[in-house]
Design a protein around this nucleic acid. Structure first.
Lengths: 127, 127
DNA sequence: TGATAATAGCGAATCGTTTCGCTGCGTCAA
DNA sequence: TTGACGCAGCGAAACGATTCGCTATTATCA
């Protein structure tokens, strides 16, 4: 019985994506500097991971540039949304609201954030 | 460079937890029935997974009962919250609000849900 | 020009997860 | 008793994710 692919970015992949979201398009050297600072892994590892991610379509690269420049295939919001949808599906069986309430019930928020949320609610209701 | 443990329930583990959340405390046979229906895996696999999860503290079991009865160590809300916190940390770098807004901006909600959320916002502001 | 360093890629080792075969034990009916 | 059956456990295979050593290619410059 083969295992079905997770389709979700793995741990290290997320770490790399985060670096790219923060730095913007970067050469391996830069990415490695950050990744190594975080986990102490080898340069080869970074290169390999990027090639795997390229394969999977998680990052793109400009091969004309020298050295090659990597950039995320999707931005943070889009990726986060996808992972979230997946989490909701797996744990809450599709009920996004249960989860939002869950988060709200245990999180602090600033005045601005609260207001922004009210605005959003009004908008959702007003249609 | 050793890998650091994820501390998150894995895919199959979540599947089993969901079954337990729905069914309540159950013997292996019942759990297996569901898991097998979902993925076609062997009885041995279910037993093994449960023993791994017992090891990790994800489930508990009553060994006096015959056959043994398994139950989740944490309920759905608690587990979901933990996984969510982890997701927020990994993707949104700890900003729970970014994520809530993200969800709200792309989800439909019923009148009741909207009201419940307003109530919650008021409560958060109230102190 | 030859040594040195940066860049890129590949195959294999390692690790945690998932899967299963095989074994042992207890129960129950013929 | 014996043999069929359900329950439980263990070790190892299979698999994807991660890590790295080794090699090749290209740029740098003394």
């Amino acid at each position: 019985m083969p295992r079905s692919p997770s389709s979700q970015p793995t741990e290290v992949e997320i770490q790399i994506l985060r670096i790219l979201w923060e730095l913007g398009p970067s050469p391996v050297r830069e990415i490695h500097k950050r990744l190594n600072a975080a986990k102490g892994t080898n340069y080869s590892t970074t290169v390999k991971m990027l090639s795997v991610m390229l394969q999977k379509g998680l990052v793109k690269r400009d091969e004309d540039a020298q050295p090659h420049v990597y950039r995320p295939a999707a931005n943070r919001a889009k990726t986060g949304k996808k992972m979230l949808d997946d989490l909701i599906e797996r744990v809450y069986e599709g009920s996004a609201m249960s989860l939002v309430l869950q988060v709200l019930s245990s999180t602090r928020a600033s005045k601005e954030e609260l207001n922004e949320m009210r605005r959003m609610l009004d908008q959702m209701e007003g249609k």
